[in-house]
Amino acid sequence: MSRVNTVLGPIAAEELGLVAVHEHIGYGMPGSELDTQWWKTPEQRYEETVPKLRRFAEYSREYGGCTFVDATGICNGRDVDYYKSLSAKTGVHIVAATGFVGGDTALRFFADATVDYLMRQFVHEITVGIGDTGSRAGIIKVGVSRGFRMRELDLRIYRAAARAALLTGVPIFTHLAVDVEPALAVFAEEGLPLDRVLFGHADDGVSQGRVNETAILGGGGRIGFDTFGYDLELPDPPFWGRHRRERLEHFLRLIGEGHVDQVLASADANCSPLGWPGVEGHTVNYIYEQLIPDLRAEGIDDAMIHRIFVENPADFLTLTTN
């Protein structure tokens, strides 16, 4: 039986449809909730979010449905009851994450915690539920703190995540793929197969030259092209933006080199950002409105697109214990 944890309960992987594997309903760094400049009414939050998810669902009809993997970890505004209402009303499957975007988003209680405690936190959220929502996390978020250097706390979270992934069968995805050697060492020490790890943001503008793709691919890991759409061609691109053509060619190069089963793509867009302005005009629907047409124009056929957006993410998200 293939199972994936969504906020409305486990579903068969066959039901996932097209998967946007690294997205955010709304992300805000811890503490941003204290700053009223970012506050939105509940009406505004739903108004900004629901049409994007409904369009995502409409675009996905030919795939039998769609799944939105929310990469907002603990302490960053993750709001599972809200996700449940969005999922129930729009028909989009939503997978919530346990874990942390990086050590610098883990508040003091968790920053002071041991590997063993962090593991129990993650396992509880995966097997029992997140808070009192009853919803189980389907993936673990880990990441590198700001500054492109893996810190001790980051690695403590990586190790706890590896142990929780081995025990529960959920996969791991990372914020940033830079300074990856310490992470690879942790996963090797813990015995986690690297096909259970998606090394994210390997495609962003500021990570180029800092990602050891050879080591990730050689170890069997997956590489996330998950900031598609943060294009420097936008009117007001973020600092991690990249030229659209350059990112696309990077992605095509890995496919051309035979790594199609080790790459996943997503847009990392916020439906309604919580603690930052967001990027005007960038949504999860970039996948349909720009990326898939670009891939088709480059000769990627429907079977390959299905493999990238349906079969491989389903394989990745399926609870897998050995």
């Binding site: 603990i74 302490c75 508040l107 936190q121």
Partner: peptide
Amino acid sequence: VPGAEHAYD
């Protein structure tokens, strides 16, 4: 302690 409100236990 900041974050403790999210602790599973």
